[in-house]
Each structure stands twice: as structure tokens, then as C-alpha cells.
């Protein structure tokens, strides 16, 4: 990973963990061209730089793409568990290396709460033992769900975060695609971070 990107991750993580209360629901906003990179930077920050454990909820591309990227960027995957909502409908071969649950399409996004809450998890993944849940571009949910369903999901996610101990909830958003998400995000989140603000530091 380039030095420039690493310094963005470090700044971003310093900012996120400078909060008094880590039990927070944070939105990271970025351009639609930077979604995959933003997810990678956040996972690098959580897993590698801060040694945190958590879930990555995949809404756009099968989880193996991120798994491949993390390998390429030397990020260990011992402490990540994927919830993959895409592979079932993508027609790609489902690859399960023991750290993934598949949901039958982004239409059934609510199923992820059942997965996170279920009591047959291994010790690392018990809800009260994980440190973060990162949700992929929430805007992409609107390709498959009504605004009402997405609102319901965001509110349930917030309740999950607020009802847990020291759990950081993080959602990535590309608000250019669906401006109607802005009101919801402003109402429900504790903070909205613009990734480009951190990138400005390194811009020529």
C-alpha cells in the first residue's frame, strides 16, 4: 500500500478512535469511484493498524474480491468474518474458507442481524467480543430494496451498535447516487466523515 494511502488510513483511524465513546455509528462518505478502496482502507485500519476484530457486510461484490485485496496488501484475515449478500445471486462460485456466512441476496439484508446475534458463533465472533462492523456501500442496497426497507435496516443497525459494548458501527456511503439517503444518515449516525477531507492532506 502506498505511503500516501497509509497516512490517510492512520489519520482516519486516529480520528475514529479519538471519540470518547467507541460505541458509535459512523458514516464514511466517498465518491462512487472510491468505494472499493475506501472499504480496503478501513479494513486495513481496523484489522492491521488497530488489531481489531469484526464483520464486513458485503453488498456489492462477492467477498472473495476483498479477501484477495487484503491478501495483496498483507492484511491478515484471522479476525474478519464476512457476511456476503451478493455471491448467491452473482452466479460466481461461492468460496467459503470458514470465515463467511452467505445471505440469499441483498433483498434479505435483515438476515444479517440473525447471523450476528446467533449463539453458535466461535469465541472471536460473539457480538460482545467484536470491535467493529463495517457495512459496504449502503447506497447499493437501494438497487434492491425500497427506501422504507433501507431506513428500517439503518435504524436496526444503529440499535445493534448502541446496545453493544464498545462496538464501532461503520457504513460507507456514496451519496451522489441516492441523495435521498442524506436525511436518514444525518438523523441516525453519530458522525459523518468525508474521506476526501483526509485525502486533501496528501493532495498536490
Amino acid at each position: 500500500m502506498r505511503e500516501k494511502d497509509l497516512s490517510v488510513v492512520k489519520e482516519l483511524m486516529d480520528h475514529v478512535y479519538s471519540r470518547e465513546n467507541t460505541n458509535a455509528f459512523v458514516i464514511v462518505e466517498t465518491s462512487f469511484t472510491q468505494i472499493a478502496k475506501t472499504n480496503l482502507l478501513l479494513l486495513k485500519g481496523f484489522l492491521d493498524l488497530n488489531n481489531k476484530k469484526g464483520y464486513f457486510v458485503v453488498l456489492d461484490r462477492p467477498h472473495q474480491y476483498m479477501s484477495y485485496l487484503l491478501n495483496m496488501h498483507d492484511v491478515t484475515q484471522e479476525n474478519i468474518h464476512y457476511i456476503d449478500t451478493v455471491s448467491d445471486m452473482s452466479g460466481e462460485e461461492k468460496v467459503d474458507e470458514g470465515n463467511v456466512d452467505f445471505i440469499t441476496g441483498p433483498y434479505h439484508i435483515d438476515d444479517l442481524f440473525g447471523i450476528i446475534d446467533r449463539d453458535d458463533q466461535n469465541e472471536v465472533l460473539l457480538k460482545d467480543k467484536i470491535d467493529f462492523i463495517l457495512v459496504d456501500n449502503i447506497s447499493s442496497m437501494l438497487n434492491y430494496n425500497t427506501m422504507g426497507k433501507v431506513e428500517e435496516f439503518v435504524r436496526s443497525f444503529k440499535r445493534l451498535i448502541k446496545g453493544s459494548k464498545n462496538l464501532m458501527g461503520c457504513m460507507v456511503i456514496d451519496s451522489e447516487s441516492y441523495p435521498e439517503l442524506n436525511r436518514l444518515i444525518d438523523e441516525e449516525s453519530d458522525e459523518r466523515i468525508f474521506l476526501e477531507d483526509f485525502m486533501e492532506v496528501e493532495k498536490r
Binding site: T33, A36, K37, L40, L69, M72, H73
Partner: peptide
């Protein structure tokens, strides 16, 4: 591999 390493748009 190069695309994964550099992450170009």
C-alpha cells in the same frame, strides 16, 4: 495482481 496492488479507477 497489479490492479489489486494499485487499486486504480
Amino acid at each position: 495482481d497489479k490492479i489489486a496492488e494499485i487499486m486504480p479507477q
